[in-house]
């Protein structure tokens, strides 16, 4: 699943490790979510959105640009 987690994290000057600690997962899990190789649970999506001060839409909603 494509998402804006990586770009938002970088904009917030956070490392993968810091974000992982805030939401209670491992750094590997954050890396996998950013690469779109793992679809997080709704609870984890909410925790990520809260940590990054964004809405779920801003982080995970795919807009078709075609």
């Amino acid at each position: 699943m494509k998402n804006n987690v990586k770009i938002t994290r970088i904009k917030n000057s956070m490392t993968q490790e810091q974000l992982a600690r805030q939401v209670g997962v491992t750094r590997q899990t954050i890396g996998l979510i950013e690469k779109g190789e793992y679809n997080p649970s709704l609870q984890l999506c909410i925790n990520l959105a809260k940590s990054l001060n964004k809405t779920l839409d801003e982080l995970f909603w795919e807009v078709d640009t075609q």
């Binding site: 997962v25 491992t26 590997q28 899990t29 997080p40």
Partner: peptide
């Protein structure tokens, strides 16, 4: 589930 004690806290793992 009773198996929860065998599982890691991280949801991916």
């Amino acid at each position: 589930s009773w198996i929860s004690f065998l599982l890691p806290d991280d949801e991916y793992k």
